[in-house]
Amino acid sequence: MLRMLVRRLALGAITVFLVSLIIFAGVEILPGDACTAFLEREAQGQLLENCRQELGLKRPASERYLEWAAGALTGDLGVSANGQKPISELVGYRLRNTLLLASCSMLVGVPLALLLGVVAALWRDRLADLAISTIAIGAMTIPEFVSATILILIFSVWLGWIPGIVLTSADAPVAEFFPEILLPMMVLTFVMTAHILRTVRSSVIEAMASDYAQMATLKGVPYWRIVFRHVLPNALLPAINVVALTIAWLLGGVVVIETVFNYPGLGRMMIDSISDRDLPVTQAIALIIASVYVGVNLAADLLTMIANPRLRTMHMRKG
């Protein structure tokens, strides 16, 4: 088990390392560099020279990569081309805001998805299932900006309960994001619930039809006990990975939603940095998002392994 853990951690670290290489190489391969990109037409003469000096672009690429990577390990992501502020500071609040939005959505969305998925499965092909499944498909097919716009129309324009746009600055205290955060949160919850509940529904249906569920019925186990004790622990295992993917998607900055609602999160910062041609910032955010993906998936795999006795005992015996 421990050996397995170490191996998975090492693999995760290697993945992040490779991703960082690709990101760095990608930026290097682009014609020009961070300064020409940022300065655009003014990229000439002294201005360009100064910029390159300050960003340290004169040294060889390998040296700059090592410095960047070493810095990233200690939390120092370099300085932005725009205004030359430390990126860690810029990113810090944005990351917090994205985490805030993601965790609020998750706190509502994950339990809701599990509940609805199980309900749809147990009342399969009945009214409840048809309603839940139809709405889920709707949620997955309607583009997020459309559902976001509809919510703004209902809650901001017609009812006037919640502002349709977030005007709070990125570094404001958490409390100031309420109630504006509710609208983006609702859209995200809507979409993620749909994804998770569909997986949960099909795996609960499968488990209810399994030999062990039939055996439990023929052993005289009451229905709800079969559901909670025999079926759900098995059926929810595959859901862990879908939940992980959804969380990674949320943490990776949901670009469209943040843009629609003007929410100061990581996704919007990424878009802004791209339109500002601020390559150091883009590079840093890409690395953060990649690390989050790897980290969340790693956590999901470990959780699956702990929750599934088949995997758990296998690794215990081997390692």
Binding site: S210, Y212, M215, L218, K219, G220, V221, R229, P233, N234
Partner: peptide
């Protein structure tokens, strides 16, 4: 009423025990 009889007075031994025993218990 069935729950009281099944597994009590009238019990089943299934075909494929490997799949009929709940894997997580």
């Amino acid at each position: 009423e069935l729950e009281g009889i099944r597994g009590g007075r009238l019990a089943l031994i299934p075909q494929n025990s490997g799949q009929s025993l709940t894997p997580t218990l």
